[in-house]
Write a protein that binds this DNA or RNA. Structure first.
Lengths: 143, 143
DNA sequence: TTTAGTTGATTGCATATGCAATCAACATTA
DNA sequence: TAATGTTGATTGCATATGCAATCAACTAAA
């Protein structure tokens, strides 16, 4: 597998994208019984600890274009797991809010996610994930 | 930014996906003058060292579903950068081949990619990327 | 306060991603 | 060889991704 890439194709983006594909697939396998995608799960987690979040801020947190976020939220709205409210202070802003149905869904999803997360972390030496995160953060930092 | 995620959202998939989004965007910024996407560049690199590759093998190398690969190749075909040939030994197999136009395009792309790659690696300590790759490979390995 | 600039949301367009289902071609077995 | 199984490609469907352009709403400057 790697023989196709090394050494000619040492592209950082390529390796990150490939890994993200493979790992995402495992998490989505785990969440499939609830018909939940990886992004949807993480959005629910982020929302579950706050009253509301502005769309822009959520997009920033996900390192994602606002237009992408905007569309990715739609399935959760359709499903009744989140709601979009307006900000009375600023008519432009859309505030995202998790519903009680969304909280219940998150409860059901949590053990499925935990299994996938344990499987992923189990592949690494102890402490390897924090190390990886440190390296990843250097690649992530905004100039 | 991270405050939205830590410590509640420690999901490995989430962090990989976010990083892959952010880094991919930088590479695609660099390649934009040639109207080349990150995947397209890497596909050309992989093809440039071989006569042909079967679609299935290329998909495997990219850790990508065959149907995804199949569709992702179409813009390169439309552009004349690659060709699809049949395998006389097996009528099912599609062999992918880079064209001379594809090689020329790759030549033009290489310095643009190198700039993005240098920028990415420049964010890390020396030797940090190989370390990262080792950790990433553990997450990647097929059970 | 009008004007000009800025910011947030949305939509069109093009590519990315994977699953399930289907069809065609090859391989195996009865 | 005929029946069965397997493998490769493709398409439908749903979601993911970002850029450019547009519109609406707020803000700052004239």
């Amino acid at each position: 597998m790697d023989d196709l890439f090394e050494p000619e194709n040492s592209c950082v983006a390529l390796h990150l994208r490939r890994l993200s594909r493979v790992v995402t697939r495992r998490y989505e396998d785990a969440l499939r019984p609830l018909n939940l995608k990886s992004f949807q799960f993480s959005a629910l987690v982020a929302l579950s600890r706050r009253e509301t979040i502005a769309q822009t801020n959520l997009a920033k947190a996900f390192g994602m274009d606002v237009s992408t976020l905007n569309r990715n939220l739609k399935p959760l709205v359709a499903r009744g797991a989140i709601e979009i409210a307006s900000n009375p202070k600023d008519g432009r802003v859309r505030l995202i809010k998790i519903t009680s149905a969304g909280l219940k869904l998150l409860d059901q999803a949590m053990p499925l996610w935990e299994a996938a997360q344990a499987e992923a972390l189990g592949r690494l030496e102890p402490e390897a994930w924090p190390d990886l995160r440190r390296g990843m953060n250097k690649l992530l930092d905004t100039d």
